[in-house]
Design a protein around this nucleic acid. Structure first.
Length: 258
DNA sequence: TCTAATGATTCGAG
DNA sequence: CTCGAATCATTAGA
């Protein structure tokens, strides 16, 4: 632990004027940490996480649960990173002070040039910045792992919200004769249900085939939605148009599906 | 813990 | 490309 590496010292002395070692690796790490919201201002963590959510494909409302988890873990990483960074910084200056004292002591027995001191300091800083680099590296790794786990969690199937299924069923059963929403309609439904258009497509694909496979099983559901849309219609537009219990026939006999 | 429901994926056809 | 169909994988309910 003694700073007696004078040969080492002389060897590694190179023109390192304070900063700007254009190390692309470190630059990369810095950028990454900044983008992930680990370094940089406090608020940007949420922004980075939001960016991640957006990058994974919309639906920013209902995944708040795994999302909070992600953010919590990210904050943890962030905290560790900063405390470690501070620790190294402190250790660095402490160690520098130590070495300075040693040099001062030695200066009583031999002449020590300012240049030697300067190079000594730069060596120490290099060593410590290497350590910090390592810290950045491992922090990056941790973030990557966390990120991939977050993505994995999202990849798992989640049932749509009750509300979303209601909306989808509503459309499906009120268009039983032709349950093929256009791309536009899919987008619209997707927006309302806070899912993706592809998910809407999946849903309709599944629904059509499963409905067709066993119409009887879905009869009750069909009646329910038919009644409800009928009720809605009678309430909103023409309450006087009788037919209180009468649903459109097409909802009962979807011959278009056979 | 077994089972039904359900969202996603894959593949052939048109 | 979309669709139907079969199938997979996970979820929710008994």
């Amino acid at each position: 632990m003694e700073a007696t590496g004078s040969t080492n010292l002389a060897l590694s002395v190179r023109s390192v004027p304070e900063e700007e070692p254009p190390d692309p690796q470190e630059l990369r790490l810095d950028n990454m940490l900044l983008a992930e919201g680990v370094s940089g201002p406090e608020k940007s963590a949420a922004a980075a996480a939001a960016a991640l959510a957006a990058a994974t494909g919309g639906s920013s409302s209902d995944d708040s649960c795994e999302y909070a988890d992600y953010r919590e873990k990210l904050a943890q990483i962030r905290m560790i990173y900063h405390t470690e960074l501070d620790k190294y910084e402190q250790a660095c200056s402490e160690f520098t002070g130590h070495v300075m004292n040693l040099l001062r002591e030695q200066s009583r027995t031999r002449p020590i040039s300012p240049k030697e001191i300067e190079s000594m300091v730069s060596i120490i800083q290099r060593k410590f910045s290497a350590i910090q680099m390592q810290l950045k590296q491992s922090t990056c790794e941790a973030v990557m792992i966390l990120r991939s786990r977050f993505l994995d969690a999202r990849r798992k199937r989640r049932n749509f919200s009750k509300q979303a299924t209601e909306l989808l069923n509503e459309y499906f059963y009120s268009h039983l004769e032709n349950p093929y929403p256009t791309e536009e309609t899919k987008e619209e439904l997707a927006k309302k249900c806070s899912i993706t258009a592809a998910q809407v497509s999946n849903w309709f694909g599944n629904k059509r085939i499963r409905y067709k496979k066993n119409i009887a099983k879905y009869q009750e559901e069909a009646n329910m939605y038919a009644m409800r849309t009928a009720l809605d219609a009678s309430q909103s537009s023409s309450p006087a148009t009788s037919n209180t219990g009468g649903y459109p026939d097409s909802c009962y006999t979807p011959d278009g599906m056979l």
